[in-house]
Design a protein around this nucleic acid. Structure first.
Lengths: 191, 191
DNA sequence: TTCATTTCTTAACTTAAGTGAAGAACCTGT
DNA sequence: ACAGGTTCTTCACTTAAGTTAAGAAATGAA
């Protein structure tokens, strides 16, 4: 399991065995059951996540309705905004499936970063890449219709359609579950 | 004008006079006329921008129609995704108003960062903050209707409504200009 | 397996956005 | 001030999403 993490890191920097051991000694690997809530609205947290296997989602509760805004699957990293802003969380994080992930808190990162400047450099590159990627996603969302967004999802993240409940996908696409259901019927009709 | 930049930087790190002079010697300040196109679709670029005064926008051209996805105003930083991915740009950047900005390219940044590690640290914090902020914006967009998005814009960036043409605001809100016009009429009606 | 709960679909109706077209209002440069 | 272009609004019509409600299908736990 650890190898997944090291394979990912090796795309950015190379680690010595000593460095790998230092990371392992932090004891950051966690295995969490489907449905587990990792973060609740109103909570403060310093934890960042990296998904090794499984799927987690972030969602808001507005008028007692869940609004899912993102899914994080294999090799996705998530640092909740509340960790950066040091304010209570606006949203929930929960496990869509049984999931194996790493949990690292910001204090730990400060320590690791001071010991391994390489690691700090990797985090910088990573967040710049994520910023650019997210910008592209946001732009694509703005400039397309719900139907186009769904088609795009089939293309880019087909796994999500299989592993995630429709009602969660719906708000991820910015619509209601009933509309997604209709939209899907419309598409299969066309073919 | 330079002071605006240094005031901004001082929120993150403190600069010595030597460091300030080093930055000034890079000759990064530019003054650009309204309508100037800073980046075209298909172009490669290494340039990042920081707006000191004025407003620039990013837009895609889809079916010969402009789709505006973002506005950058005073104290906003923009590194186009194509700079990160090193691929041709998918979008245009143009000036909504006469604008004063800094233009820095990634080679320069490598040089500055190696001379001033502080500066590198600032960039890291900045991109983490931007990532979190953009995530919040994206989530808010997904979870709200065009009308709510417009109300939110009035609240959060009232200046944009004054300084930017409606048809550009429309795609920024994810709708057509006609819909924005109707939506506005609907709102003034309600009051 | 069965029962209860969760999730998904369908339908009828309402509301709002997309479309196409026309004209009004507003710049901008000469 | 004027002409030409750009931008904004309005209208009638079409299409799709929101809403409410009901029931079917799938899932999970006992």
């Amino acid at each position: 399991m650890q190898d997944l993490l090291f394979d990912f890191i090796s795309k950015y920097i190379s680690l010595t065995d000593d460095e790998k051991n230092a990371i392992l000694s932090l004891d950051i690997f966690r295995s969490v059951k489907k449905g587990t809530i990792l973060l609740k609205e109103g909570q403060k947290s310093k934890d960042s996540y990296f998904v090794l296997q499984g799927c987690i989602r972030t969602y808001y509760v507005v008028d007692s309705e869940e609004k899912t805004t993102a899914f994080y699957t294999e090799m996705d990293a998530l640092t909740p905004p509340c960790v950066i802003s040091k304010t209570p969380s606006e949203y929930y994080i929960s496990c869509v499936e049984d999931t194996i992930l790493t949990v690292s808190n910001s204090d730990m990162e400060v320590e690791v970063n001071s010991k391994f400047p390489k690691f700090d450099a990797m985090c910088k590159i990573l967040s710049e890449e994520l910023l650019a990627k997210q910008r592209i996603d946001f732009d694509a969302f703005k400039t397309s219709s719900p139907e186009q967004r769904y088609m795009n999802l089939i293309e880019k993240r087909p796994d999500l359609i299989q592993r995630v409940p429709q009602y969660q996908l719906a708000s991820y696409l910015g619509i209601k579950p009933e509309s997604l259901s209709r939209l899907r019927a419309r598409i299969t009709q066309k073919k």
